[in-house]
Each structure stands twice: as C-alpha cells, then as structure tokens.
Amino acid sequence: MNCPIHPDSPVVAYCRTCGQPLCTECRRIAAGTVYCQQHLPAIVPPSPSPPPSTFAAGSSPGLAFLLGLIPGVGAVYNGQYAKGIVHVVIFGLLISLTTSEAVRGFEPLFGMLIAIFYIYMPFEAYHTARRRRLGEVVDEFSSILPLRSHAGRFPAGPILLIALGLLFLLHNLELLRIERLLRYWPVLLIGLGVYMLYCRLSGYRKPGAKSEEHQDVNP
C-alpha cells in the first residue's frame, strides 16, 4: 500500500490519532509516537482523552518498583489510574477464584498465577517509570493488552477472545462442561501448528509485504 499524498512511497506507519496511512515523508514523530502532520501533539492536543502522564522528571523507577509491590499503587504512581484499578481487580479476582469452589483441583496453578502477577506488577511499574523518565509518552493502557492490530496478519487475538467468550458462556449456561472439554487439549497444539504453518506459507508468498508491516507504528 502506498501513501495517499505521495503515491510513490510505501506506507510505513499510521497516525496514532486518526489512523491516516503515512510514508516516511508524511510521518511526524513526537515523544516516540507517530502522528500525521495534522495531529502533532504540539499543535492539537487531543482534548477529551489527554495523555494522563506528563513529562515527570521526578518519576523514579525504584520508587515505582517499591510502590508496585502494593497492587495497583505502582500504576497509580505512574499516573495510569485505569491500569491501577484493572491491576487491583485482576489481583482480587485471582485470589477469590483460588479460594472458590470453581477451580477445584487447580489451586496450585492459580497460586502460581497470583505469584506471577504479583511480581509482574512492580516490574511493569518500574519499566513504565523508566520510559516516562526518558520522556516517552506512556499510553494509559500500555502493556495491559499488547495486541496491536497488524494489517494482513491472521487475527489470532480477536478470534481467541471470541472463542474463549463462547466457551465460558456455554459453560455458564450449562450447555457444555469445560472440564469435559479439557481432555481434548491436544487440539490446541494442532491448532497452533496449523497457525504457524499458515504464517510461514503466507510469509513465503509475500516476502516484501511482511517486512513493511514490522515497521509498525505505536511503540
């Protein structure tokens, strides 16, 4: 695909604000994020959703790490309030799931998940604080959902979400038992293999297209 303004140059990025396709000439970079000429933050600050984090020179990664040991507080320290709440909710859900009857037999798994998530939170806060100190604009939902849409790639994330949603819904409506389904888990391996095969095959067909995709926009 080529740039609408410079029909000869290929598109290398998209504007973070309006999604406009951009070539190297049209691309403007502000604070590590790609914008088009029209939406450079210095000219037009996006009004209803201002990036909550300012260029706080006083954000200390070490302090962020320490505060991150308290669920949610590390993200709040980084000015990411929604993420903080999401962290607290996830942490609480994990704990209440572990103690509920629903996970009978899987308590060790959930215990490990809690431990991993608890360790994840301070490290996440540490890295976010470091990026903020370097002057990068940190997105409110950074690293909560790292699924970025790459045009042309197989939409694995959305399809996985839909499948999981359907599975849980059928389970809750008592039309299907997840425990029964678990014994068919090797199907997942097969699915993964088919998916990888698909990626390889489509990669062979259009080798040029893939390399363009990887210079994608948002950090």
């Binding site: 604000t17 996006p46 209803p48 959703s49 909550p52 309030y81 929604a82 709440i85 909710v89 409110e140």
Partner: peptide
C-alpha cells in the same frame, strides 16, 4: 472531525469501574 484514538479514555474507565 478527527476521531479520538480511544472512544473512552483511561480516566473514564476508572470512573466506570468505580
């Protein structure tokens, strides 16, 4: 008009969860 990147910002989601 130009569209926002997210229809609902992080601060709004915080209020919604509360």
């Amino acid at each position: 008009f130009p569209l926002p990147a997210y229809g609902i910002s992080g601060a709004e989601w915080t209020a919604i969860i509360l």
